[in-house]
Design a protein around this nucleic acid. Structure first.
Lengths: 343, 343
DNA sequence: TGCTATAATGAAAGCGCTTTCAGAACCCTG
DNA sequence: CAGGGTTCTGAAAGCGCTTTCATTATAGCA
């Protein structure tokens, strides 16, 4: 029932119709050199009449530029993702680039047959989110001069690849400082993210830094794996509780873990924040709707996406990049830390 | 500091190194016809040694296939989005296609200069989410035989374009039936989505159908715009309350609106569900964490993305499509409707 | 008016691949 | 061992564009 795509207009059709050469059509389409207004408008008319749309493949082949950037992701999920992608998409669009999405569900080689059309020949540059690309491959791409920008992950040692990150450490520090200084907490537990997760690493660093600054000894028993996941976090909290380990606050690593932690605490009959304060990280949409509303830290995610694209485009077009500073995070005080409670 | 990309290996380099013609290399890369094992392995070795990756542009130009599908979105946001994209991405990957993302933030023509490399020449097919593409353009693409599949939106009259949708109507019907039959609600308010939103339309249809089936007259005063948005919904509920309009249940159109509705109700001192039951639609991640946990309807979003890709690929490759049925939705009973409460 | 500088245009050579088409090499039969 | 199939491989023609280079039209100036 559905036939093949009808043969479409090419640059030659437009040229013929406008009575010019294809070179001239190319010039008016791309604005690469001056064309008399009279000629140009004839060409434009022909383009419209024929519904001409240049074929990206032909352009890319001839110019060795795809005007496409690739986005490599470890997985597509979470509340983090839409704003990030929105920022990236907007950045790409503003700069005239298309966006090719790759999620690396499997670790099977991006560059092994059967070839996936990403990589150094098929995009002009790559945005690498978190740990979606192995270091060896990153090094190889860097070596051959292929533009990459890292997102939410710092560059491996010795590779000066630009990377856009958040101030996880200082954000966590501010959060734990608040717990200690304002609410007098002394036994603060930490629910870490997935092993090897860089955000988690720095959040824990901020946590320990704050403890130390306030003369509170670090107790490894108060650190457990929360996996940045509500159920895993809930399980971890239940473990603590049944093991008789007690705390007056939980820093949950991220907001999803905080949700799980609050739920587990409440199921066990502990009041939040009266018995145990809980704080998260990220300020996802629902954090304000939890009961109690969650105290957390907000990161400019969408902005990060935009900035990363800008860096990448700059590298692609100008051949150079600055290395941006970590983006500032912001403390968001709500009630789960104990603030604003009726006494 | 960063130089241009080093010159990379082409098919000719591989051919030379393996001592064969480029045609043979092409055959082993694509498996388009038999090649002696001895030859093939020489070619494979050369490919590995040279880090050869075929250039998508050249392939696309020669074969008139981009192996890329485009995804058109009105906006990137919400809890709906990650699972949808995950499904689409997985579907694309499984079928050997790349995914080009387009969000239509502005309505400025996709096909006007300066050209954006989407459209009939630059992807093999288009996935159109909700109302991201105007009907006229859809009609034109259909006329020239360009593959399109609609997602969460039905085809305009007279265009037999395949579309993947959910059973919004029956889902809503089941939800409202539950409210009426199990909880004896009689004054059920409805918070509609954005104007013209198809999901909202069908949910409202299911709502009215249930009312009618139970002999409850439809009261237009009990319908207000919730915008599928927490704040807009909260405002609408406040309006009802200050206007003295009363209800024993609210069907909130979607879960985000339900969150806003619950918050507004609670601020006004109404208990949920004792005074007013609230139900949503979508079963987003946090619905179970609200207090009370939200009764809602779940749709197989990720699956929808996958199916849509499959349809599209089938059209692209086989030139034909079936028109899939709406995907079934599932009632998720929690506590906000009044179930499971201590009496 | 004639000559040169300049602007506008066209011809043509690729870009790196796929895909016919045809030839070469091989394998069976009888 | 001749004849007729199969296989396997290579030559070469594009795919639709960009871009260089040469050419022609236009203008500027003495």
């Amino acid at each position: 029932m559905h036939g093949a795509v009808t043969k479409r207009a090419t640059i030659a059709d437009v040229a013929r119709r406008a009575g010019v050469s294809i070179a001239t059509v190319s010039r008016v389409v791309n604005g690469t050199s001056r064309v008399t207004e009279a000629t140009a408008s004839r060409v434009r008319a022909a383009i419209v009449e024929l519904h001409y749309v240049p074929r990206a493949a032909a352009r890319g082949l001839a110019s060795r530029r795809t005007h496409t950037i690739g986005l490599l992701l470890p997985e597509i999920s979470g509340h983090f993702f839409p704003p990030l992608l929105r920022g990236i998409e907007a950045g790409a669009r503003e700069n005239g680039y298309s966006l090719l999405i790759y999620s690396m569900q499997d670790r099977s080689g991006l560059f092994d047959p059967p070839y996936r059309p990403l990589g150094e020949h098929n995009t002009d540059g790559l945005l690498v989110f978190a740990d979606s690309l192995e270091e060896a491959e990153m090094a190889r791409l860097y070596r051959i001069g292929f533009p990459i920008v890292l997102l939410c992950r710092s560059a491996p040692n010795s590779l000066p690849i630009p990377s856009v990150t958040f101030e996880n450490r200082t954000g966590a520090r501010a959060l734990v400082d608040h717990l200690i200084e304002v609410h007098g907490c002394r036994r603060i537990a930490f629910l870490s993210g997935p092993p090897g997760h860089e955000d988690s690493y720095w959040r824990q660093a901020g946590y320990q830094e704050s403890l130390q600054a306030h003369g509170i000894p670090f107790d490894p028993a108060l650190v457990a794996a929360g996996g940045f996941d509500d159920e895993e976090a809930a399980a971890a909290v239940e473990n603590w509780l049944t093991a008789g380990i007690d705390m007056d606050a939980i820093f949950a690593g991220d907001d999803e873990a905080a949700m799980g932690a609050i739920a587990a605490l409440q199921r066990a009959g502990r009041r939040v924040p009266e018995d145990v304060a809980v704080v998260g990280f990220d300020d996802i949409f629902i954090s304000r709707y939890l009961s109690p509303p969650l105290t957390t830290v907000r990161a400019p995610i969408e902005q990060a996406g935009r900035i990363a694209v800008q860096q990448l485009v700059q590298w692609i077009q100008a051949g150079r990049v600055e290395h941006p500073l970590p983006l500032p995070t912001e403390l968001v005080i709500r009630r789960s830390c104990g603030c604003g409670m009726v006494r």
